[in-house]
Amino acid sequence: MILVVGGAGYIGSHLVKELVESEKVLVLDNLTTGHREAIDSRAIFFKGDLGNQEDLEKVFSSYPIKAVMHFAAFSLVGESVVEPMKYYQNNVAATLTLLNTMIKHNVKKFIFSSTAATYGIPNVDIIKETCPTSPINPYGRSKLMIEHILADFAKAYGLEYIILRYFNAAGAHETATIGESHDPETHLIPIVLQHLLGKRDRVSVFGSDYDTEDGTCIRDYIHVTDLAHAHIRALDALLTGKKSNEVYNLGNGLGYSVKEVIETCERVTGLKANVVLSDRRPGDPARLVASSEKIYAELGWKAERNLEQIIKDAWKWHQNQLY
């Protein structure tokens, strides 16, 4: 059985929906930001917290868990600057409680959903795993702390792990039964689509004078189902002993500009956005794109769905939002 911590959240629920096809899945989630309705009915659900020792003891004592996949971090960069305690408590301290409980119960295979925020603002166009890590906010630092802890635990306790770093998960499941639902929403694609549905009066573009092809920032968007498949590839590699104690980037290798995203949303929906140009945001680099050459070479994964497919699936979800 695979324990998916945070399996009611956006990325976690998409992973669960794919993983139940091949594995028995147990979801642990406190539903702080996740949605019970998003969990596939074939998975077992346990409402609990990864930082609660009593909850974890119940889970690890009751089920034959062979690996753990972690999607339960807080992930809002701005909030992490204002409330760093919240991020270090959940993303670091609570994760330590989970890892300690795993080791106590001799569960030593761990897939960690990390972030390209660990790189900070690199001075390269395409980010590889060998780029220096220098996060610029508590969110990125909290994730990098766990990456260091995993390396130490591997040496000391025999923990086996794979870390996956990525930028912007986007889109929704092709069935439109689950999708991206955050409160507050901070991601570009759902913000544009909410605007086109009449739920917002404008779309703000922060900076149009960057050194890019059209002057707007370029970011890496990956379909959430592609991300789910990458996690399953990593899990299979860990379970079969093919790979362990590795870090992989997940990216499309190209990047899409803010303007390109908005124009694609308009083309897919047939609607026109009210776009307002605003000042640059402090710390926003012109281009953040991840290379996925390593995971393709070693595990055979690459992003399959392009920006238009991402937005088509997201649009279906937003038109029929179920939670």
Rank of each mutant, 00 (worst) to 15 (best):
E293K: 12
P84C: 13
C217K: 05
V275D: 05
V82W: 15
Q53H: 11
G51L: 13
F46H: 13
E79I: 05
Y87Q: 13
E260Q: 14
R165H: 09
S278I: 00
E293T: 14
S41H: 07
L144W: 14
D125W: 05
Y221F: 15
I2N: 05
G255M: 13
T133E: 12
Y157I: 01
G7Y: 06
F110N: 13
E263R: 04
E293R: 03
T212P: 01
T269M: 13
C265E: 00
S208G: 11
G300C: 08
L19D: 01
I121C: 14
T101V: 02
M145N: 08
T212F: 15
Y166V: 01
K108E: 04
L271C: 00
P282C: 05
G48Y: 01
G198P: 02
G251E: 07
G171H: 13
K109M: 03
T130A: 06
Y139F: 02
V224Q: 12
S22L: 05
N137P: 02
V4C: 14
E180H: 08
D313K: 14
T264A: 12
R165D: 06
H223M: 12
I111Q: 04
R219L: 14
D284H: 02
T101K: 10
K242N: 02
G51K: 05
V261C: 13
V68K: 14
G78L: 09
L271F: 04
S41Q: 11
R305E: 07
K143Q: 07
N320M: 06
T177G: 06
G215P: 02
M85E: 08
D55M: 10
P84G: 11
Q194T: 10
G255Q: 12
D152Y: 10
S41V: 02
F153P: 10
L28P: 04
I146P: 05
I136R: 14
L99D: 03
L164C: 03
